[in-house]
Design a binder for these strands. Structure first.
Lengths: 345, 345
DNA sequence: GGATACGATGTTGACGTAAACATCACGAGA
DNA sequence: TCTCGTGATGTTTACGTCAACATCGTATCC
């Protein structure tokens, strides 16, 4: 029984030469049509186009990249996608890149060490990308982390020294707004449940919280460090709940705030009656927490889009503008029901 | 004043030939070292390796792809990354691909129409990927959606007809477990807050819910459709709260469950005292909801890993095994505090 | 000791594309 | 009428790599 094997596999895709032969032109003309050059006769163009259609021609990107040196591909380094903001930013990057005709090559370093970062970097550079976007690269201040090749880079939320063009959420403004909101409600001071110490975003929020308290002359409690997870928020919340002085907490993200609120509730401390809690990020679910969470909303989509356009700018001008370029996206305080004036007395 | 311009830009990266010249061998030997062939003298190998080091040589992937026809790149089509499961799966795919020495090329179709899907597909194929993984492709049953080229495909959670190798969460088992759990607690029946109708996962969960009720001889309420968001869960929850017959709801994901619970609470119906709610997905935050959410936990990481290994298998064997390959990942019921026996009377 | 096999290395060519240059026809202007 | 410019098209070549084949030396076996 001879089975008709559907071996679509081995069929070699058509090349420019095949299209050229069918259309009765030179392969160079096919190239011109494929690249939408103007100097092709309309009639010829149509003939070539239909030949392409017939054969199902697609330009070979490898060959094209080999000869042009451009890959039309953006590399993205992101450590974790489970963080809400990162995946949002990535999605926006992907969309914007696509619109501009670029692909996205995603890489996650195995760890946040300088070495792993550099490895991811050079892997990407070797793989062939025109530019690289790093999302919240935590260990970017590692002294010897330099771009291995002359690949343009944009850093999202992570470059403290401004060595690279970057796009940042205005963490200072957001954290200050959060802290000031709580102080404005009458709280004597505000505790801070920070993100991990190796995160720049976390550091910036903590710094702004600190300076806001200082400026207001409020006492400054010790910073508590979580790891962004609800679980860590919960664990720290249990400790915090024991201290009756705590009437207001600024959590560095919504997930930790969620865990924190649970811990407080279990300890009999109700939010916001006994303790006010404010989060950060403004994830879509935060409005449905119990109580609905007051938070600082970040526009990650905007960050992603700006990263791409900044990178494309660098790609366009051959000379690099020298790390001065920087975009800042302003977050927004969203007041809901997890914050209130402190309990009387 | 002549400024020393640091034009790292224009420096052409070193090629095999450069390394060969420095090491005093032919470029073919460099190629052999780069590809870790065995038939190179150890001493020569070392010499070449150090020459590579000195020059900072990285093989040009475009040239390599051009001549081998392999790109060492996996294309991933994912519609939305804001869905928790998708970004988790993507992350796992990225890690597994990297381990196997592959890159990930991420594409999001503009819409879920067959046309946009096909476009994303052929874009990826044209960009040069060895295989494609589709994450939860909703409109995959579109009759004329066929692979434009002979590119191997693996579908995660989405291929109803088994036309392609696929990896699925066992939605039937999960939804049945959820429904049975509620029935087992004594509820007369279970309402279902389903995901959007064009989602296969949502359909499968709904189907299993239906058949479980039917088998148990329980009355079958009309299905309610959300869009996975907490917001949609809330809106539907407001309607559901009015019906005092409702004592148990199976929400097709945790986010909708969260919105649903909020709506019930606002209507004075307490969970789980008056109404039991079970979610789906098992997002890390679900244990910190109020009340902690009973849910069905899916192992997205496992799905991602299996997708990659299935794809690599197809890449390895030249002939394709014909769409019969399928992996199923079993979800796990996680009982917490949002489910309880129905109110007496 | 001579044929043989094998391991190490070099040489040549092909992959598909686009840049650079060459050619050709045709119309405008002197 | 001749020249020159211009637009359409063809020809040649380089891009960096690896496969295929060629070459050379050396150890092995009878």
């Amino acid at each position: 029984m001879t089975e008709a094997r559907k071996v679509t596999q081995t069929v070699k895709p058509p090349s420019q030469a095949d299209v050229a032969a069918l259309a009765g032109v030179s392969s160079q003309t096919v190239s011109r049509v494929a690249n939408e050059r103007s100097n092709v006769d309309e009639e010829t163009r149509q003939r070539v186009l239909s030949a392409m259609q017939v054969l199902g021609y697609r330009p070979n990107s490898a060959a094209r990249a080999l000869v042009t040196g451009r890959f039309r591909m953006i590399g993205v380094i992101s450590f974790s996608l489970s963080a809400h903001g990162n995946s949002r930013t990535l999605q926006a990057i992907s969309e914007a890149a696509q619109t501009a005709g670029y692909s996205v090559n995603l890489v996650g370093p195995e760890s946040q060490t300088g070495g792993a970062m550099r490895k991811a970097f050079s892997k990407l550079a070797g793989q062939g990308v025109d530019g690289i976007i790093m999302i919240e690269a935590q260990i970017l201040d590692h002294p010897d982390l330099r771009l291995p090749t002359g690949v343009p880079v944009v850093v999202a939320d992570g470059d403290p020294d401004q060595r690279h063009p970057s796009v940042d959420n205005n963490q200072a403004a957001g954290a200050e707004a959060a802290t000031a909101h709580l102080l404005g409600l009458g709280h004597r001071t505000v505790w801070h449940l920070a993100g991990p110490q190796d995160s720049f975003s976390a550091r910036r929020r903590a710094a702004a919280w600190y300076s806001t308290l200082k400026r207001a002359g409020a006492p400054i409690p010790a910073v508590l460090y979580g790891d962004w997870s609800a679980d860590s928020g919960y664990l720290i919340g249990r400790r915090l709940a024991e201290d009756k002085d705590v009437t207001a907490v600024f959590a560095a993200n919504d997930h930790m705030a969620l865990g924190l609120i649970k811990a407080l509730r279990e300890a009999g401390r109700e939010v916001p009656r006994d303790v006010s809690v404010i989060g950060y990020d403004g994830i879509p679910e935060s409005g449905f927490f119990h109580p609905p969470l007051t938070t600082v909303h970040q526009d990650f989509e905007q960050v992603g889009r700006l990263c791409v356009s900044l990178l494309l700018e660098q790609l366009a001008e051959d000379h690099r503008p020298g790390g001065e370029v920087r975009s800042v996206v302003t977050p927004q305080l969203v007041v809901r029901e997890s914050t209130a004036p402190p309990p009387a007395g």
